[in-house]
Structures are given as C-alpha cells and as structure tokens.
Write a protein that binds this DNA or RNA. Structure first.
Lengths: 230, 230
DNA sequence: TTGTAGTTTTGACTTAAGTCAAAGGGATGC
DNA sequence: GCATCCCTTTGACTTAAGTCAAAACTACAA
C-alpha cells in the first residue's frame, strides 16, 4: 500500500497515520523500465522522488557525451530534493529545472513523486520532518564529500578497491559482492571508463587480491586490499 | 558586537534580539593567523563554526600528502555543520571527529564556535532556523554537485576557465578578478597542482583570452572564454 | 641592503588513464 | 536456431597531466 511505502522513507518516519493518509493523496506513483528516463536536467522541476523498487541513477552528461554518476538511489531513498530549497518563490515558476538527469536502471522501477508546493507547506508546519530533512541532507553531504575525496585524492585502482570494500561492508555476510549495476555504470560512478575499469579489475586479480566472475567479485586477500586503499 | 555578527549569518537571520542574546552567551570567539589550523580531522567534534573575518579553507590530505580543498569559507558563512546531524546520540560522546581539516588563509581570521549540544536544542525548538539550515545544506549540496561535475567531466583548462568566469560573475563590476588565495591553494581547489595551473594560465594567455599579472586576472575575450568552458 | 623562506614558473621527463578499433560474450527476440 | 544488440574485454596508441629538479620572483625580517 502507498502509505506503507511512505512510512519506510526516513524523512516521513515521524508522521502519524492521518498525516500519511493526507500525504498519500497528493503524491503520484510512476513505474519505469530499465533505461527509461525519469527526468532530464532540462525539465521543469515538479517535486522530489522516492525510489520504491528497482534502482535509479542520478547523472550528468558533458558536452562531449561523457557521463558521470553522482548517486545511485536504492529503495526508500529520496532524490532531487535539493531544488525544493532553491528559493522560496522561484520554485513555483517554470524557470526551475532538475539539477541532473535520472534514469531507471532496472525493469519495474517504481517511484513516488512528491509535488514541491504541497511538500513545502507540510515542511513548514512540521518540525520533525524538517529535522529529518536536515539529517538526510547531512548524510548526502557526507557522501558527496567522500566521493570528491575519492575522485581527487586516489587513482582508479584505489577507487575500485575502495568501492569493493564498501560494498562488501554493506553486505557484510560474506567476502564476496555481487554488482547490482553494469560495469559501464560502475565506471561512470568511479569517474573512469569501462576499458580502464576492466583492466583495473584484471590487475587486482593478477595481484591475487580478488577474483572476478561476471558480476560476482570475491575478495581473496582482505588485509592487502584494505591497506592498499588507504 | 557579537550578536551583530550572528545576525548576519543566514541561518540566524530569523532570530529576534532576545534569542540572539541567548545564543551569543553560549558561543566562543577565536582568532587565527594565516596558516593556523582551526581543527584537524582527527579532533573530537565540538560544534560548528562561522567565519567572521578572513578566509578559511576546508581540505583533505591523502596518505601521500596530496591536498584537496573542498570549500573556501568567506565571512558570515558556516562550516563543519554536517556532523551535527550525524546521529542524535553519538554527537555528544567523544568518538566524533571533524570530517576534514580547517585552516585560516589570512591573518586575523576571526571565527565563532557554536557548541553542538546547545545548538541542537535551539534547532529542535525553532522551525525557522531548521528550514534555513535545510536551505543552507541545499546550497552546499548544489555546490558540491557542481564541484564534482567540474572535476569529472572537464579537463584542467576548462576548470580554470570556469573558475575565472565564476569569480568574475561574483565581482561583476568589471572584467578582471583578483585572486584572494594563493595559486597553490587554487590548484588544490581545482583538483590539480601548481605547475599545471601555471602552465594552464599561460596557455589561456597565449590564446589571448586572459592576461595574468600576479594575482590579477583580466578577461580579454569573454565570449571565447565562455563557450570554451561549457 | 642582504638573507631567507615561500611562492610561482620553467624545463625535461614519466606515467596513468583515455581514445580508437576490433573482437568476444551473453542475453533476448524472432 | 540464428540474428541482433549491448556489454565487456583486449590490444595498440595517444595524451593530459603529474613528477622531479632547478631557477626566478616576492616579500618580509634582520
């Protein structure tokens, strides 16, 4: 049910049943297939989104068609909330655009659109949501800081090794990870290109730190991998 | 006066005189000289800061001593607010560290420290501040998104040209800018090294787009510079 | 003024990572 | 089945930007 989905979203976790009902009346649900565009950075801003199922990539494209992925949004996480706060008045005219592009990476990617105006009204009357919003932004800021640190201070090999360790840490149960995105997308996320990523994984394999089998990467020498990334 | 300074800080701009008085009693003022460390990323988190005079750089250092500057904080802007929202309970134990390093870049750099606990209490009772905090974070997020876009999608020459145009846009009055930071720092901010920055500026000069005289950069061919960066 | 330290520039060289082109793989649909 | 498309890998080559070392310039202090 819709309000059950909303409840699982961090910023809405403080709302009671009535508030959730009210909210669920103003939101819109949409479903996308793999490769479908959710929005382009040229479109007027309508509001922010929640991923309910599937996976969404937030990305930028340069003039010469290079792509860089800023975020990968998994279920019950939000995206495109930043423009909400652009400027109290300007949001509601048509000049506002989405700050990046969003694409579904899996079939049956379901998202919920929260319209900007209604949400802003809710926010101004509800301190709890507001504080959660700040916390959510803080988390996002930490992620971006970390991302910049990785991109500027580390070479591709260290970034790849770092990504593997982070993913393994999330899964935690065993020493292998299964990529949920294509290697093309992983390359774009790590600030490199598929060819280089491929060669890098091979290099880490030749050094006996990992084994790669399709989308499954197994960590063979955790210790060496760890003090290699730092 | 202290509360006059606080009033000029965006997130405090909604507070009345009494609230400002209360706030000014819990804050601490500190003065630093050029090159002084305000905090290291190894120190326990005390609270966030406001720059009142001077300039502060927020930066990261890699194991092999490479530096990257994340932000440059000018007067009446805040820094190190993100950890405030790390986790409601954990902030107050000693395990919390600053997420990056902060250094004064000018003599007589004055900052105000807002202690974490007291500010959190203020925040929970004051929706206005909370909304301004979200807006402030949104602005920061936009900046970081832009920064990542620059670093990943553009080469050094485009980044340098982009920086010049942004600075000129801020000043606005004429077509030349005066760097307020050293070229070493500018290089670290643009994700490169001093040698490369020097050569890049020379290249832009040879192409007759700019002239460089010490810290003053004059834009000679605005149009060409503009459609060069995109 | 000279000294000293820090910043910036220049030159010669190296290298990590990108480009281009082609060949394998794997999945999906007809 | 095979054809098509996309993803991934491999090889050969190029290049942007980094490294290292030294010189030039700047600024302030003795």
């Amino acid at each position: 049910m819709l309000s059950d989905n909303l409840k699982k979203v961090y910023i809405f976790s403080g709302l009671d049943e009535t508030e959730l009902e009210t909210l669920s009346k103003i939101v819109k649900q949409k479903t996308f297939n793999k490769g479908d565009i959710i929005f382009f950075d040229t479109e007027p801003y309508l509001g922010f989104y929640i991923t309910v199922t599937g996976l969404v990539k937030i990305y930028k494209i340069s003039k010469d068609a290079k792509e860089h992925i800023l975020h990968l949004i998994s279920p019950y996480n939000t995206f495109a909330e930043v423009p909400l706060f652009e400027n109290f008045n300007e949001i509601f005219d048509d000049s506002f655009r989405y700050p990046a592009n969003a694409m579904a990476l899996e079939d049956d990617t379901r998202v919920i659109l929260i319209p900007a105006r209604q949400f802003r009204e809710l926010l101004e009357s509800n301190t709890k949501i507001c504080i959660k919003m700040v916390s959510g932004f803080a988390k996002r800021l930490r992620h971006l800081n970390h991302h910049i640190e990785e991109l500027t201070l580390k070479d591709v090999t260290k970034r790849v090794a770092g990504y593997i360790l982070t993913e393994q840490n999330k899964a935690k149960d065993n020493d292998s990870i299964s990529l949920n995105i294509s290697k093309n997308d992983l390359a774009a996320y790590l600030g490199t290109i598929p060819e280089t990523l491929s060669r890098t994984l091979k290099k880490l394999q030749d050094e006996d730190m990992i084994t790669v089998d399709g989308k499954v990467i197994k960590i063979c020498d955790m210790d060496r991998l760890k003090d290699f990334v730092v």
